[in-house]
Structures are given as C-alpha cells and as structure tokens.
Write a protein that binds this DNA or RNA. Structure first.
Lengths: 145, 145
DNA sequence: AAAACTGTAACATTTTTTATTCCAGAAATT
DNA sequence: AATTTCTGGAATAAAAAATGTTACAGTTTT
C-alpha cells in the first residue's frame, strides 16, 4: 500500500454540503434553521447536517442554539465568509487522516518523493485558496437571483 | 444520497503514483523500464503501475514496448511535461464517475445549487491548473539533486 | 411536564480505492 | 520453433472511506 494524500478534500460532497448549508442560512437571514429543515433542501439525513454544522461551528462560520426553537445561523455576514474558509473548514478532518506510506527507501526517488510531493501540493493548495478567497458567500448567493 | 462531485481527483494517491512513475522514467532517460521495476520503487503492485501507465499512455505522456526487454519510457522530454497534464490525465477517469444527485427541487437553493457549484469548481480548477502548469517534470526532478 | 430542538455515539450500508491472481499475446533470445 | 520476459487487461478480492441510520441524553421554550 502506498499513499494517502488528502490535501484536496473538495472531493465528494462535504464541501458541497457545507456550501449548501451556508447558502440556506444566508438566505434565511436571522432565523434559526433546524437541521431537519436544512436536510430537507439538501436531501440528506439530518444527522449528516448536524455533523457538518458541528464542523462549521468549530470554524466560526455558524452558531447554533439548542432546545426548542433552536437551530443554526451564520456567525457573521455572508459578505465576510469566503469559499476559501469553507474549503479550509472541510479540509481539516481529512488532514488528520493523512497517512503517507512507504515508497522504497533504497531508491533515490522513492526516498525523497513524499517531501517533494508535499511541497508541490502545498503550493497548489495555496493557489487554489487564493482563487476561492475571491468568492464570498454573498457573491455566491447573488447567483440565485 | 446526494452529491458526487469528483472534480478534484488529486485525492488519494493516483496523482502521486503517476508523478512517481514519471519521475522514475525521467531519471532513467532512454531505457525501457518494466512495471516490476517501477512498482519496486513505489512499493505497490505492478498491475497498478500498468493501469496507471495505460492511462498515461492514453494521454500521450509515456510510450510502452511489449515483449521481452520491453517496458515504458517518457513520450517526450521531461521539460515538456507539466504537472497540469498529469492532473488532467488522472482526473479523466474520475470525471466519468461523476454523478450529481437530487437536492430538493422545490427549494430555491436546492433547485440551482448544483449548477452554481459546478461553476465554482470549474473556476477553482482552472486556477489550480494554472498553478500546476508552472512546474515541469524536469523542474520536479531537479529537486532530487 | 411536554414538545422541539441539538449533540453525539454507535453501528450499518454503500461506494470507492487498492491489491491480487491469472492468462493471452508480443518481442527478444536461444 | 521453443523459451523467456515482458505488456495488456479481465476478473475478483480485500480494505478503506464515505455516507446513512438509529437511538438517546441534554437544552430550552411553551
């Protein structure tokens, strides 16, 4: 077995789900939105929404209120939330799972390639983040007009 | 179930494996390298290497020779192969698997979000490719000096 | 006290990725 | 022309990751 670079976690849904949640919250303004309601629009299980909300909360993008009439809303104006932040928020978890495995250390290339790939990935990611930082959640919401 | 955006396929190894293969071939110059040898440095199964070679071949990055004393080598000088090409080569297969599923069509956001996410992803990917196009395989190999 | 939420843990299912086995066919070597 | 050493690729298995579900304790409003 080999390599588990998880740098580009825009993969497979979590980023999309987070953006979807944030978009709904942006449209709902000051209201507290239940995970049930959010899940209804996204068409996934409410528990998945809560998990994602939990992560967004940890990253300061949303706040939640427990108890009856509780729910979630944006932690700051949509003009101050950037896609790069969403990317970073979603990425975290994957990064933990990162496990770089054993290329052959007797090979000049194998011995060093992980470091070099790391650098390459870091650079590429910076570029990507720069691009994503140009779109705010407010910008994104405008598209629905 | 929801969303399967597979745009960012730099995920989990295939990109790394392809770069590893290409780097080995770049160092080996004109020699024909067997999948067995390549697999030895990467420390994965030779069949996986052949699959990856098959893909790289389809994208004009390597050529292979069958039969005894056969193997693979670069299809062009390493200075003319860019990381963006490798990314594109690896991406293809994932793109086929792309399946965007059913957000709630009764919701203003749900109805349109996939299109908007698509655009966002396309833009981000363009940025990423631009970044990757700045590093050639030759550049990458220099790091091993 | 009841109702309507969140927050999580534990578990089940599905999908994707990675690995393995096997063999037919191609070219060099003898 | 038989043998050897490769590729090419199908079929299958195993492992890992992503996604979905159930269940329930804890919070706050009514």
């Amino acid at each position: 077995m080999y390599c588990n670079y998880k740098y580009y976690s825009m993969n497979s849904g979590r980023f999309a789900i987070s953006v979807h949640i944030l978009t709904l919250l942006a449209f709902a303004d000051d209201e507290w939105n239940s995970s049930e309601y959010l899940a209804g629009s996204i068409n996934i299980n409410p528990v998945l929404v809560r998990k994602e909300l939990s992560n967004l909360r940890d990253h300061g993008l949303v706040i939640s209120k427990e108890g009856k009439a509780g729910g979630s809303r944006l932690a700051k104006p949509s003009g101050q939330i950037f896609m790069s932040e969403v990317y970073e928020a979603v990425k975290q978890i994957d990064l933990l799972g990162k496990g770089i495995n054993s290329p052959n250390p007797d090979c000049v290339v194998g011995r060093k390639i992980n470091d070099h790939l790391d650098n390459l990935y870091d650079d590429a990611e910076k570029t990507l983040l720069l691009g994503l930082s140009k779109t705010s959640l407010a910008d994104f919401c405008l598209k629905f007009a």
